[in-house]
């Protein structure tokens, strides 16, 4: 595996004694979109900030492109772009100047054509001479992304990039992320909108209480931990589930008008055909039926709430 980021035994205890990260190990493959999910205070931002050099690790190490983030920080940091969670912007500066500043800070020689391309891709070109204080919150978020892209990073951290942005901007942002992926940029994102991770990510990592509790390909995770449910809307309400159907562990909902069967998507035999046969035999008739699959959000909530 060609890792762009390799984190080993990384721990962080803040001065107040709070243990934000506990022995974290993580490999990020070049070119992937990795979604790091976790509840508030799980350690997502601390992990990102350590790799970027904003927070010092208590122990452990991280390599970016094989360069140690503390001993070879220049080589490590020059390929990283960071879009932070908050909106720290140079209020009085113009969009153009702030992006040019970012590019120079990362050691790149001026390249107006590149800045122009980045601003256009984020629909910021007509705002290039505006002072940042005049922009809306969503626009400021775009400026932060433009700043992070101004030096052509190979590894981009997006910390809650779609917090507080409207639907249109969110879609524009994901279009940019897709384009970045196509151009070979590795993206690590944290988000509260798990549907986004479900839509975008190649792999998902779940962090809780400073520990990585799971890292997996998104598709296999969905398949492995995802449950499917068959819901039958009954013709007549049932008082109780007929005893011959007890093996199916059915659940009665909606005052007996809805019968729910939960089955495993991995099983070769889901038992649906047999169940339908037995329902007919028991003279349980239904008007309608539909199936539903648990979302990444359900899986996430299930994993995070599970006792460690």
């Amino acid at each position: 595996m060609d890792s762009i980021l390799s984190i080993s035994n990384l721990s962080k205890t803040y001065a107040g004694g709070f243990e934000a990260l506990k022995n974290v190990n993580l490999e990020i493959e070049r070119g992937e979109i990795f979604a790091l999910l976790g509840p508030n205070g799980a350690g997502k931002t601390t992990l990102i900030n350590i790799v970027c050099g904003i927070v010092s690790a208590s122990s452990g190490k991280a390599l970016v492109n094989g360069h140690d983030i503390s001993t070879d920080f220049r080589k490590a940091r020059e390929v990283i772009g960071l879009v932070p969670q908050e909106l720290p912007v140079e209020t009085f500066e113009s969009v153009w100047n702030t992006c040019t500043f970012s590019r120079g800070l990362f050691g790149r020689s001026p390249n107006p054509a590149h800045i122009e391309k980045v601003l256009k891709s984020l629909s910021l070109w007509d705002k290039k001479d505006s002072r940042i204080m005049e922009l809306s919150g969503g626009m400021k978020r775009r400026v932060l992304i433009a700043k992070a892209l101004s030096h052509d990073p190979e590894l981009l951290f997006l910390d809650e990039p779609t917090a507080g942005v409207d639907v249109e901007l969110r879609q524009a942002m994901w279009r940019v992320v897709n384009e970045l992926r196509d151009s070979g940029v590795t993206v690590i994102l944290t988000t509260h909108y798990i549907a986004e991770a479900e839509q975008m990510a190649d792999r998902v990592g779940i962090i809780n209480g400073g520990e990585i509790i799971l890292v997996q390909e998104k598709d296999s995770l969905m398949q492995e931990l995802g449950k499917k449910q068959l819901t039958l809307n009954l013709h007549e309400a049932l008082q109780e589930i007929p005893s011959q159907l007890s093996a199916y562990k059915l659940v009665l909902n909606d005052e007996g008008r809805e019968l729910v069967y939960t089955y495993d998507t991995k099983d070769e035999r889901t038992g649906i055909t047999a169940l339908l046969g037995e329902l007919q035999a028991a003279d349980v008739r239904f008007n309608d039926l539909h199936t539903s699959q648990s979302s990444l959000e359900d899986i996430f909530v299930d994993l995070v709430k599970r006792p460690q």
Binding site: I54, L82, P88, V89, G107
Partner: peptide
């Protein structure tokens, strides 16, 4: 104060 220092701290500068 504004938080923009993050960029200087995360840049490849000593």
């Amino acid at each position: 104060f504004t938080g923009t220092i993050f960029e200087v701290l995360s840049a490849p500068v000593s």
